[in-house]
Simulated assay, not measured.
Amino acid sequence: MNEDILKGKWNQLKGEVKRKWGMLTDDELDRIAGERDKMVGVIQERYGRTRDEAEREVDDFFRTH
């Protein structure tokens, strides 16, 4: 998904993101604001994933949504 499209649809996607990664707080979701790199970093930090693992998860999520 194009980063501009992602930012535009972020409010719609936040609920789905919260369902998939329930440990993310509302503040973290607001800070991410549809930016892929920020999302990867937060998931990496919160879930203890490697950068590659977090990137794969995020990319897979956006391919299906």
Rank of each mutant, 00 (worst) to 15 (best):
V58Y: 03
E57L: 11
D52G: 08
R56F: 10
Q12D: 13
D30M: 11
D59W: 13
G15E: 07
Q44D: 05
K18Q: 10
I32A: 03
R19Q: 15
H65A: 08
E57M: 05
D4A: 14
H65C: 10
W21K: 01
A33G: 15
G48T: 02
D37A: 14
M39C: 08
R56Q: 14
D59S: 15
K14E: 14
E3I: 11
W10L: 15
I5T: 14
E35I: 10
K7N: 07
L29Q: 03
I32R: 00
K9F: 11
K9V: 10
N11R: 09
E57I: 05
E35L: 08
E28K: 06
D59C: 07
R31Q: 11
I43A: 05
D37N: 15
G8F: 04
E3V: 12
G8Q: 01
K20S: 11
A33R: 13
V40D: 03
V42E: 07
E45A: 15
Q12V: 11
M23P: 01
D37E: 11
K38R: 14
K9A: 10
Y47A: 02
V17Q: 02
D30R: 14
K38Y: 08
L6W: 01
R36S: 05
H65Q: 11
K9M: 11
M23G: 14
E53P: 06
D60Q: 08
I32S: 05
F61N: 04
L24R: 09
G34C: 02
R49Y: 12
F61K: 03
N2Q: 09
T50I: 09
E16Q: 15
G22I: 07
K9T: 09
G15A: 06
T25D: 04
K38F: 04
Y47P: 04
T25Q: 02
E55P: 00
I5R: 15
R36K: 12
H65V: 14
V17F: 05
F62R: 02
R36L: 05
G41I: 05
Y47G: 01
D27N: 14
V58R: 03
V17E: 06
D37V: 14
M23Q: 12
N11M: 07
L13D: 02
I32P: 00
A54D: 01
D30F: 10
K9W: 02
N2F: 05
K7V: 11
K38H: 02
D30T: 14
M39H: 01
I32H: 02
V58P: 04
G22L: 03
H65T: 12
D37R: 09
E45C: 02
M1N: 01
G34D: 00
E57Q: 13
K20M: 11
E57Y: 05
G22C: 00
Q12C: 05
Q12G: 08
E3N: 13
E57S: 06
G15C: 00
L13H: 07
R63W: 08
M23V: 12
D27T: 14
V42W: 03
G41F: 00
T50Q: 09
K18G: 02
